[in-house]
Write a protein that binds this DNA or RNA. Structure first.
Lengths: 197, 197, 197, 197
DNA sequence: AATGAATGAGCCTTCATTCAT
DNA sequence: CATGAATGAAGGCTCATTCAT
C-alpha cells in the first residue's frame, strides 16, 4: 500500500521528467526549426536516447502537443492576471500588448517554437484553441463607447498578428528594445481603436 | 559545344519545366503541409518521377528557394505597379493593403505555401529578402506631414503582420470577404498612422 | 541464508506467480498472435509491469518454454489416465482421439497458443519433446493382430496431425461439434488401421 | 513512345527482382523462422539493403503476401494438372497425396515457410483462401459409391493435415523417403475412405 | 518481492540523392 | 532529356532487458 506522499512524489518525478523533455523540445525547435527537431536531437539535448522519450510520451505527437499546451499555459498564466487587473477596455488593450511583449522578452524560445510548430499542424482536425479574450474586451470597449465601430474579428486578428510580427523582429534582432516596441504598439492600436476618422 | 539557338531553346523549355515543378510544389505544400511535401509527392503531382526533379534542380533546397522567389516575384509584379500608381503616402498605404489582399484572394495556395515554408527556413543564413517598400512610403508620409510620428519599422512590421493574419483567417474560412477585410484594414491603419494623440 | 520454511513458502508463492504469468501469456498469444505477444502486453493482462515478469523468468524464452511445458503437462494429465483405462489397442486409439478432442473443447486457448508458438520455435535446438505414446499402442495393436501392417511413424504423425486439423477447424468455427468430430475421426482411423489391404 | 518489347522487358526486370526477394524471404523464413525474418536479413541474403526491398514492395506485408501467393501458385501449378489427369475419385485421392509429397520433396523451404507464416497471419480479415478441391473429389467418390459415407469436411481437413504432418517429419529428418511416405498415406486414406465398417 | 525508469538494439519506413541506361 | 533502380541515412517506434530503489 502506497502512502499519499510517495504517490505524489512518483507523479512529481514523472512530471518533472516530462517537463524536461518538453523544455528540450522547445529549445531544439527554436534553434533548429521544427523539421529538424527529431526525437534523436531532442534526446541528445536532454543527454539521453530516443527510447527514453518514447517511454515518457506515447507519441512524438503527444510530445509536441504537450509543448504547445505548456506554452499556452505559460502565457495564459502571465497575461491573464495582468489583464484581469486592468479596468477599462482601453487599459485591457494596453495591458494585453505590454504583458505579451514582456512575456516574449522572457520566453523567446517558447514563442519561437510555437510559431514554428503551428503552421505545420498535425492532421488532428481541431484547429488550435481559439482564444476569444481579445474579441471580448474589444466588444466591451465598443459597447462602452471607448472604441469606435470596427470589425472585432479583424481587429483581434491584427492585434495578435502584430505580436507575431514583434516576435519575428525580436528573433531577427535580439537586441531589440521590447519595452519601447510595446509602447509603439500601444500607441498604434490606441489610434486604431479610438477616435473619429 | 552547344549553339546559341539550341542553348536558348533548351533554356526556354528548361524554364517552363522548372516552373511546372515549382507550381506543383506550391500546390502540394499548400495542400498537405511543408513536412509532407516530399519530392516523391511533388513528382507524382507533376506526373513524373523523382529523378526528373533532381535533374532540373540541384537540391530540394533549390526547389524550395525557387518556390519562394516565384511567389515573391508574383506578388511584387502585382502590388508594385498598383503602388506606383498611387500618389500620396496615404494612398500608397491604402493601395498596398488592398492590392495585397486582392492578390491573396487570387493566389491563396501560393501565400499559404509561403507561410508554411518561411517559419522553418533552411539553414542558409540569409533571412528572407527584406522588402523596404513599406518603410519607404511610411517615412515619406511622415515627412510630408500626412502621418504622425511613429516608429517606422514597428508600423511596417505590423502592417505586414496584419496581412499574414488575413491569410490565416482566409485559410481557416475560405468564404471570407476579402474586399471587406481590406476596407477594415485600411480604416484601421489610417487611424493608426494619422491623427494627433 | 534463508530458512527452509521461508524458502518453501517463497517457492509456493513464486510458483503461483509464475503460473499466473504463464496463463496470461497463453491468453495473449491465443488472442493476439505470437508476434504481438510482447512482455508489455502480457504484463498488462496480469495487471503488473514488465519488470515483474523479468523478475520471475530469466528470459522471455523461459516464459514461452514454460507455457509449452504447462500445456503439455495439462494434456498429458488429462489424456494419460483415460488411455491407461483403455484395454485393447483399438480402445486406446479411440480413447486417444476422444480425450484429445474433449481436452481441446475445454482448453481452446491453450492449444491455439501452442499451435502459434510451435512453428516458430526459439533457436534452442531441442525439437519439441517427442511423445511416443501413440507409436507404442499402434505397435501393440499390430503385434496383437488388431491392426494391419503399416508404418507406425507415419500413422502416428498423421493421427496427431489430424488433431491439429481439428484445432484449426475449431478455431475457425467455434460452434463446431467436437464430439461428432471425434466420432468421425475414430471411424476414420479405425478403418485406416484395420482391415486387410 | 515505348515499344511493346521494351515495356514488357521493364516489367520483366521488375518482376524478376520481385521474385528474387520473394525467394530470399522464403529461404530466410524457412531457415530462421518468421519472427526472425526481418527486412534487413532478407535484404542481406539478397546482397542489398533494406531500402531496395521497400522500393520494390510497398510494405513488408506485401512481400509476405507475395510469398504466400507464390507458393500457392507453385503448388497449384504442380498438383492441379496431375489431379486433372486422374480419372476416378480414388485415383484423384492417390494423385493428390502423391503429387503433394513430390512437390514437398522439391520445395521443402517453400512449404516450411508457408507453415511458419500461416499460423501468425496479419490482421487482414480474410482467412487464407479455402481450397475446396479435396472436398470436391471426396463428394464425387461418395456419390459414385467408391467411398463410404463420412463427413467430407473432416476427411478433407485430415488429409491436408496429414500433409502438414509429413512436412514436419521431413523438416525434422531430411533423409526421409517421401515416396515411401506417400505410399503409406495412400494406403492409409484408401482404407479410411473405403470399405464397410 | 516488486517496480518505475532507463537503455540500446532492432524494426519498418520514408526520403533525398545518385547513376546507368 | 528522362527514367527506373538503387542507396544509405535518418526517422519514429517497439521491445526485451537491466537496475536502483
Amino acid at each position: 500500500m502506497r502512502s499519499e506522499s510517495s504517490t505524489s512524489d512518483r507523479t512529481f518525478t514523472e512530471q518533472a521528467r516530462r517537463r524536461q523533455f518538453v523544455d528540450c523540445a522547445v529549445e531544439v525547435i527554436a534553434e533548429h526549426g521544427f523539421a529538424q527537431a527529431s526525437l534523436a536531437r531532442i534526446a541528445a539535448r536532454a543527454g539521453t536516447s530516443k527510447g527514453v522519450i518514447s517511454y515518457h510520451f506515447r507519441d512524438k505527437d503527444e510530445l509536441i502537443e504537450q509543448v504547445l499546451l505548456d506554452i499556452y499555459a505559460g502565457m495564459a498564466g502571465f497575461v491573464g492576471p495582468r489583464m484581469a487587473a486592468a479596468g477599462s477596455a482601453a487599459e485591457k488593450l494596453e495591458s494585453f500588448l505590454e504583458s505579451n511583449l514582456e512575456y516574449l522578452a522572457r520566453h523567446r524560445s517558447q514563442l519561437l517554437a510555437m510559431r514554428r510548430i503551428c503552421p505545420n499542424p498535425p492532421e488532428t482536425g481541431e484547429p488550435a484553441p481559439h482564444d476569444s479574450a481579445v474579441e471580448e474586451f474589444l466588444r466591451d470597449g465598443q459597447e462602452s463607447g471607448e472604441f469606435r465601430d470596427f470589425d472585432v474579428t479583424v481587429m483581434a486578428v491584427t492585434i495578435r498578428a502584430a505580436l507575431d510580427g514583434a516576435l519575428d523582429q525580436f528573433v531577427a534582432r535580439p537586441e531589440l528594445d521590447l519595452t519601447a516596441y510595446a509602447a509603439e504598439l500601444v500607441t498604434l492600436f490606441t489610434h486604431a481603436t479610438r477616435g473619429n476618422p
